[in-house]
């Protein structure tokens, strides 16, 4: 399988073109890095690939077919700030089981404690919340994962813990992963190849 972005262009409102005629392929099982200076459109590209924004020009397809706009999206996005990505009025249990029901094995490997399921988002730290967001995105139906600076706010040990789980799951389910990061060391460690934005 292959996620393909063809001749993408995008601007916010009447602003300048942030993405201009961009082409990118992500194959199943591939770990691709995405790097580039602030403001070059990395997060915008992540949102377009996962269907949160529609491009003005070009298309995003899986094996030549459009991505369904209803039901579970096979392209899952994990955000940089988990506290902004979860519903503050839902207990963690509800957030976790929104798309699928992660098994205990996955919860254990991510270090999610049973007691956390009954907590509210403001009672957990950023690192704890991000574990939930990762578990949520790793459904068996996920074919591609877009990870937008998902461990930038976390300490080195939590970062390594989360990436170990993501890489294992990606290998197991043959998921293609796009790693968006400023951290050159992290990209070198994780990725097969790197795409540099301008």
């Amino acid at each position: 399988m292959q996620l393909e972005a063809r001749n993408l262009s995008f601007r916010y409102g009447k602003g300048p073109l942030i993405i201009n005629n961009l082409n990118l392929e992500l194959k199943s099982g591939e770990i691709l890095g995405l790097s580039g200076p602030s403001g070059c459109g990395k997060t915008t590209l992540a949102k377009i690939l996962s269907g949160y924004e529609l491009p003005q020009g070009g298309s995003v397809k899986i094996d030549g077919k459009s991505i369904p706009s209803k039901g579970f999206n096979p392209v899952q996005l994990i955000f940089q700030h988990p506290e902004k990505a979860v519903n503050p009025r839902w207990q963690m249990k509800k957030t976790l089981n929104e798309g699928w029901s992660p098994d205990n094995e996955l919860l254990d490997s991510l270090g999610i404690e049973k007691a956390w399921l009954k907590r509210w988002p403001n009672e957990l730290s950023g690192g704890e919340l991000q574990r939930f967001c990762v578990a949520k995105a790793l459904s068996p139906k996920t074919r591609f994962l877009i990870a937008d600076e998902i461990t930038t706010m976390l300490d080195a040990i939590t970062q390594a813990q989360i990436w170990n789980v993501v890489l294992n799951k990606a290998r197991e389910n043959n998921i293609g992963v796009l790693v968006v990061s400023h951290d050159q060391h992290l990209i070198n460690r994780l990725c097969d190849r790197v795409f540099i934005g301008k």
């Binding site: 270090g111 080195a156 040990i157 390594a160 060391h185």
Partner: peptide, 21 residues
């Protein structure tokens, strides 16, 4: 030591568990 060795430029090898709240 664990923090140092968990860096991607070093071993990228995390220890288990998390900081108690």
């Amino acid at each position: 030591k664990a923090l140092w060795n968990a860096l991607p430029q070093n071993d990228f090898n995390p220890i288990d568990g998390f900081q108690p709240s």
